[in-house]
Amino acid sequence: MNGTAEFHYRLPMRAAGARPGSHPGSSFGSGQQFAMHGRLFDYPDPRRLDLRASLRAARDEWLVRVHLQRVAVSVFVIVDVSASMQFGTHKTKLQVVADFVEALGHSAFRVGDRLGMLAFDSGERDDLFMPARTGRGTGSLLASMLREGVSDIADHQANGQAGRHADRQAERGSVEGLRRCAIRIAGRQALVFVVSDFHWPLARLSPVLDMLVHACVVPMVVWDAAETTPPQHASLLAVNDAESGEERRVWLSRGARERWRAGVARRRDELAAVFGARGIQPFYVEGAFDPEAMSRYFLELTV
């Protein structure tokens, strides 16, 4: 991906804050959106004096125009770095996420927002944590942490899975790791990207979303084409469980291919139901991150 790739985003609601930025704000200050008239005594800024409104006022006092200012917000990306995110045909899903994080860094810096990162697998990954900060190279730094830390991530997962039933335990651990990350930013008014393949039970996801009720949450569902589309010709397929490492062979009959496609469609419906209940629309990434598609997503979100 080009290092200068970026996209345009806006919050769909007004945000509180004192730092000037590009998002609609709920606080009064320097801005272009008129809110009301106020007394010069309360808002001592003679530059905004409105002579006509003052002459029409019932009380003999000077009135100034009060505007709503645009503000900067904090942006957080919560990344799933579990073993299933290591899968990919041309690029691993985690490498695709790194491309997105780099583009997000450029986009956030352009509008003056702070960017931070949290990560999880079976638990919270403190080694991949970065508090929200402003800087031209923040996105590149976070992306390099994901790209260069792939081997460390794999070692961490291998050590963490020793001596347990990795297949189901890892699934339960993924949402627990997400919950611990959400606790760090619970109650904040921010833009939060939750990036995962969501290959774990969704039943415990709702309480996590409740923690982020004050934030604008964007679920990014990262899948690979090899997960969503069954092979056309191979009849006998060797597969590995990404979480447990278990290997088995599957006979791909016509019925198996149909069940494969039906399972993918059913998963989309399940994700739409969980997020749709809270007015959230997931953003799907398959194969590569498309900045223009992300810009269209936010345009539709704020219209």
Rank of each mutant, 00 (worst) to 15 (best):
R180I: 10
P282N: 02
F76D: 03
V285P: 07
E6I: 00
S30R: 14
L212H: 08
V101Y: 04
H23C: 11
Q32I: 07
H37F: 15
D99G: 08
F283T: 05
V96Q: 08
M13D: 02
V194I: 15
V208D: 08
D121A: 13
L212Y: 12
L205Q: 02
L11I: 07
G31D: 05
L115S: 06
S253P: 04
M294Q: 08
A186I: 04
G17L: 04
L237M: 15
V239H: 04
R261D: 05
P291C: 06
P282K: 02
A272H: 07
H8D: 11
V101G: 09
I185S: 06
L68A: 13
A182G: 07
E300L: 09
D269F: 00
N159C: 08
G31T: 09
V213P: 00
M36W: 05
R114H: 12
Y284W: 12
R70F: 01
V221P: 11
L212K: 11
R10A: 12
P219R: 00
P207S: 07
A72Q: 03
L202M: 04
Q69N: 05
A108C: 15
A158W: 02
A265K: 09
D50R: 06
W260V: 08
R110A: 15
M13T: 13
A242Q: 09
L236S: 15
G31C: 10
F283P: 06
S54E: 01
D45E: 15
E246G: 00
S54T: 15
E227N: 04
R65L: 04
A186T: 11
L115N: 06
A15E: 09
E243D: 14
H106C: 12
R266C: 02
M211K: 13
M1T: 14
R249H: 05
D80E: 09
H233A: 09
P46Q: 12
R147N: 11
V217G: 02
L68E: 11
S27C: 05
R267L: 04
D269H: 05
P291L: 03
F34Y: 10
G139I: 03
A272G: 02
A186G: 03
N2C: 03
P291G: 08
S151R: 14
R65H: 04
E258V: 14
R39H: 13
A158N: 07
L141N: 06
L236W: 11
R296S: 05
S84I: 01
Q161R: 14
R180Y: 06
E171I: 01
R70L: 03
L209K: 04
T92G: 10
G116Q: 12
R168G: 01
H8I: 10
R39Q: 11
V150Y: 01
L271K: 00
A58Y: 01
R188T: 15
P219V: 00
R48L: 14
G255E: 14
S84C: 03
M36E: 12
F298M: 04
E270R: 07
H8P: 00
S107L: 13
R136S: 08
P46S: 05
V274G: 02
M1I: 10
V150I: 14
A154M: 08
G177W: 09
R267P: 02
R179Q: 10
R254Q: 13
S235Q: 15
A273M: 08
L301S: 04
R65W: 01
R296A: 11
S295V: 06
T138I: 15
D50E: 01
V221Y: 07
P207N: 03
